[in-house]
């Protein structure tokens, strides 16, 4: 395929729709990472939570023949795993990174272990007839030529991702609990002196994070694919964390950052048809993530310098005013 074809493919409606599809399992856990990050703790167990939810969803939907039951149990399992992490971190004083690593290891091992027991196969769950999350065709929009292909016909998780970004933004900036949560993360001592129960607030953040990451995991096993594969999250939980930083720790910023990763991923799929070795192309999203970390760091530094400069100017103006006054 020539370069021309690639360019055409990139600007096609299908490609844009593909970005939405690939971004969804990044947006949802990234929102989860955002909530805990703002509450003052890095949840590196997003990966494990996603994996457990993906697995539970597939298994429950296969045995109950109900997609709804699968999704609900998947969410429940992810929230429970997140609660376990929160318990060890908040109440048993385990280092949050080490506890998170342990949870990830347990999720990887546990899902393969159970998969083998249930199906006799360690690779994937293709022997289980698991359910698929419904696909939404938006009336009216679906008939618009270009826009219809891009916006309509996705699974419910994709729409949930955008809706939840909006809800998380409202929660964080327009509700008392959201404000408390950010205060607990910004300065726990100050928050505590104001009467905020920091531990409880952080616990809530972890539960929400578990909920959001679970949806990301379910999206992988019940919509993106319709089976469970061992280690199917493939580092998405960590890329999601990077998206939080790249997005400037803001809900919509996080969503956009996650979509940039989705774009890089979709692009690498397209470029794979060129005569470039696929290994090098596949590493694009990971290189982009590292660049994103650097960009975020530089941004933060620039902000700090700007803030210091403004502060100095203000102080100078004040002292200057004082001098003329006397």
């Amino acid at each position: 395929m020539s370069f021309d074809h690639i360019l055409k493919a990139i600007f096609s409606a299908l490609f844009l729709a593909n970005i939405l599809r690939i971004s969804t399992p990044l947006i949802l856990p990234a929102l989860g990472g955002l909530v805990t990050d703002l509450a003052g703790a890095t949840n590196i167990a997003l990966e494990g939570i996603m994996l457990v939810a993906a697995f539970t969803g597939v298994v429950v939907s296969a045995y109950t023949k109900s997609v709804t039951a699968g999704i609900l149990c998947g969410i429940l399992s992810g929230v429970l795993i997140s609660a376990l992490l929160a318990y060890f971190y908040l109440y048993l004083k385990t280092d949050v990174f080490l506890a998170g690593i342990a949870i990830n290891i347990m999720a990887t091992g546990g899902t393969i272990f159970l998969l083998y027991i249930l199906t006799g196969d360690k690779g994937n769950s293709s022997k289980l007839a698991s359910g698929m999350a419904p696909i939404v065709h938006i009336p009216l929009i679906k008939d618009i030529p270009f826009l219809g292909t891009v916006l309509s016909g996705h699974n419910i998780f994709t729409y949930a991702a955008f809706l939840l970004t909006w809800l998380v933004a409202i929660f964080l900036y327009r509700t008392p609990l959201g404000t408390h949560l950010r205060a607990a993360g910004e300065n726990p001592e100050a928050a505590a002196t104001l009467g905020i129960d920091v531990k409880q607030t952080q616990l809530i953040a972890f539960l929400m994070s578990g909920f959001l990451a679970s949806l990301g995991g379910l999206n992988l096993s019940m919509a993106y694919l319709t089976l469970f594969q061992r280690e199917m999250t493939a580092g998405r939980g960590f890329i999601a964390l990077a998206a939080v930083y790249l997005g400037g720790r803001k809900p919509w910023g996080t969503l956009i950052a996650a979509m940039i990763f989705g774009f890089a991923d979709a692009l690498s799929n397209q470029l794979a048809s060129l005569e470039i070795p696929s290994q090098l192309v596949q590493s694009i999203p990971y290189v982009v993530t590292i660049i994103a970390l650097v960009v975020y760091a530089l941004q933060k530094r620039a902000q700090l310098i700007e803030r210091t400069r403004r502060f100095q100017e203000r102080e100078l103006a004040k002292s200057g005013g004082g001098a003329t006054g006397s």
């Binding site: 060890f88 048993l92 004083k93 385990t94 280092d95 080490l98 506890a99 690593i101 342990a102 949870i103 290891i105 347990m106 990887t108 091992g109 546990g110 393969i112 272990f113 083998y116 360690k122």
Partner: peptide
């Protein structure tokens, strides 16, 4: 993979202050 579960439990129990 059972050993991974054992590993995770060891990490959690050793690091829980």
């Amino acid at each position: 993979e059972m050993v991974l579960v054992i590993q995770a439990i060891i990490i959690l129990l050793v690091t829980a202050e």
